[in-house]
């Protein structure tokens, strides 16, 4: 039943056997042990499983792992530098109280990074639009937008 796929995840090339029905999020969590990508809903609603596929934000719960054969995937585990330094988006969420329980945070940061990297001069409205598919039940969103704004400014400076 298995199908062989080769996917580059956070810069590391992985070749693995997957069942065709395996969702990308299950492949990441259960075969690669990258549990930072969360599963929040069954209906493409919550955005917790947001990762980057070849540079674009996607929902790992609504993508088959086999569809990613030959592609590059980036998850929240790929943000922190090798020396342990936090990525500017992680630092900004930390400093601006952009999270409480943290469940939505990996997806939120990956969605935010998607807009910052593709539109470095994104307005607050454009940031909100890019996050419209990511639900947070704790923060009320204000501090999330403030975090993303701070990270965008920091990344533009560096």
């Amino acid at each position: 039943m298995g199908q062989s796929i080769t996917v580059t995840v956070n810069g590391t090339v992985h070749t693995a056997e997957v069942e065709p029905r395996t969702l990308l999020v299950h492949f990441l969590r259960e075969q690669l042990n990258l549990t930072g990508t969360h599963i929040g809903c069954d209906t493409s609603t919550c955005g917790c499983c947001t990762v980057h596929l070849d540079g674009d934000t996607i929902l790992a719960c609504s993508t088959l792992a086999v569809q990613c054969d030959g592609s590059e995937v980036r998850t929240v585990e790929g943000l922190q530098a090798d020396d342990g330094a936090l990525h500017p988006i992680q630092q900004a969420f930390h400093e601006n109280h952009g999270l409480q329980c943290g469940f939505c945070t990996p997806g939120m940061m990956m969605a935010a990074l998607g807009v910052i990297e593709q539109q470095p001069d994104a307005s607050d409205d454009e940031i909100r639009e890019a996050l419209e598919g990511n639900l947070c039940r704790c923060t009320g969103y204000q501090n999330i937008v403030a975090s993303v704004r701070a990270a965008a400014d920091q990344m533009a400076r560096s």
């Binding site: 493409s44 955005g47 934000t57 996607i58 929902l59 639009e129 598919g133 990511n134």
Partner: peptide
């Protein structure tokens, strides 16, 4: 349509 993640796919 939907969210950015949905419009991307």
């Amino acid at each position: 349509v939907g969210s950015m993640t949905i419009r991307n796919r």
